[in-house]
Amino acid sequence: MSEVSMLGAINMAMARALEDDPRVVLLGEDIGVNGGVFRATDGLQDRFGEDRVMDTPLAETVLAGMSVGLAAQGFRPVTEFQFMGFIYPGLDQVINHVGRLRNRTRGRLSCPLVFRAPTGAGIHAPEHHSESTEALFAHIPGIRVVIPSSPSRAYGLLLSAIHDPDPVMFFEPTRLYRASKEEVEDSGEGLPLDVCFTLREGSDVTIVTWGACVKETLSAATQLAGEGISAEVIDLATISPIDFDSILASVEKTGRLVIVHEAPRNCGVGAEIAARVAERGLLFLQAPVERVTAPDAVVPLLRLEKTYMPGEKQIVDAARRVVRYA
């Protein structure tokens, strides 16, 4: 076992998949010799050859669409889009074909692919490099949306996404790429999709989050514990479809819910979680649901990105408010 960063874990998962499954191919811009703009595919072309790790021209529409053709032919394309802000030319394919090929052919053709894209702010990147638009994708039927929050979950969830017979959008928080290292065993074992992970058990408030915000939320939970507030932290992990039963069970236990996401508030995935709690768990609640999110504003350039992103303080404040409500 070795200590790896999230990038290392993602690289390890792709190497494992390439090793174990001849159907797996990697596609993307600069992923070959260069190893990807973040080096997620570092060394993989050297190791597996140009037929398995393919540098494509700079054209995201055909990158997305050719992945559909490859997947329908029985390959397992793992396609890298350099940033979430550049995946949008492929969105037509995601909505019109990726998410519906199986359905519209009644199972004759399917689309087992993974679209990987770095997501989120916080790395001092230029404009369009700090998007958190997972809610756009969560609205699309027929696909899964997954966001890992640690090296081991990145490894396990990516492997499961690659093994899955259906399409998965896999968004990797850039802020966590090199933030920490942990021991990850290259076991070839995936982690389950469609379920959330309870990272910390608690009894006073449920905090649901995902991706990079998991980091601040766990720090907030530690701080809250010092004040005698016991927070349960749930990493949603699979953003769509949502493992709502686990969230509801937690809210039934704690009676309070705070949702934290880096994406803008309006129609964010937090809204869906809050709405479902209102539908099925209203009477569990001892306080209004709180959302800690980015504002409904364009992601600012780097001078303001810290202000834009939800921080530990806002999470702690929200948790205190719901615990001390009425």
Binding site: A64, G65, M66, L70, A71, A72, H97
Partner: peptide, 22 residues
Amino acid sequence: EDFPVAVPIASQAPHAVGIATA
């Protein structure tokens, strides 16, 4: 292995490229 008809215009061209790559 033929694709169903593509209604969004030209969206089937990248599919053919993917199939040809396969």
